[in-house]
Amino acid sequence: MKNHNNSNILESPEFRMAIIAISVFVLMSLLSPERFLSSQNIISMAFQFPEFAILALAMTIVMLTGGIDLSVVGISNFTAVVAAIILTQFASPDMSLQASILWYGGAIFAALILGAVCGYTNGILVAYLGLPPILATLGSGLVFTGFAVALTGGSAVMGFPEVVAWLGNERLLGIPVPLIIFIVLAFGLHILLSRTSFGLKITMYGANPLAAFFAAIDINRMLIKVYVVSGMLSAIAGLVIMSRANSAKADYGSSYLLLAILIAVLGGVNPYGGYGKIIGVVLAVLSMQFLSSGLNMLQVSNFARELIWGSLLIIVMIINSTNWIKQKKNAIKPIKSS
């Protein structure tokens, strides 16, 4: 059941994204061959991108319904702070390995549950109370961040058992653990979207919410599940960030929100809903990472980087929007008369 919006593979946003990813990679390799292509750089990239890439996955599933989740970073930090507090309160760096693994598992479990609860709240706001997703999640994101600030007083929580560092910094069979987590999640989301009733309903709802209502799809339940999935993915991103930073703070990853939206849109997800593929999002993640480390090596300042991302987002939207507007126009052509 392929979507034939882009029947010609060469015109599909995924193909365009693959070209971009390769071009950026080649360009950066040419600009700074010794440093960009060094194994050290490749590995450090593989450790860096999973955290925002997971947030981009969270963004993607919500965008497929025609919504947006601006609370992803808020949920990450809130859940990470709670996990960190559990660890600092109950576990200590000099604890035995088994005990610290146990407490770490408990903290992860708590973070996931909390992420689901945050997502559930968003889902209630959007589905049952009918708030526009952009405002509902803008508000709830601030609330979640606010909780994190209240719990920590705004400072970083640190002093974890050593085992916490494993998730973000170690390798399994030579592959960075965060990368493995991302691959598993991306593949899982791909299966969820293309091989389950829930996934197809998401796409169909995004394509035409009114028709979904008339087709007797249980829209409210579906929307809540979407936001719960988004919340849990955000929580996982939060755990990866916490492990890599070896601390948790209410305002980590503040630039990741824009980045997550940028990646989803760049990857071909239609912000009006109804179209998007995980492979496109993965390619967009790689392009952004190549671009970002390349710019780093060329010693472009952090502020300039945000400027570049913002401009990129607008440019991609302009390129894609001709397509989207065409679809929108077709969708609202009246049927009556003549």
Partner: peptide
């Protein structure tokens, strides 16, 4: 077109 079908879908 607006209530019955998902126009862009197969």
């Amino acid at each position: 077109l607006t209530e019955g079908l998902f126009l862009t879908q197969s």
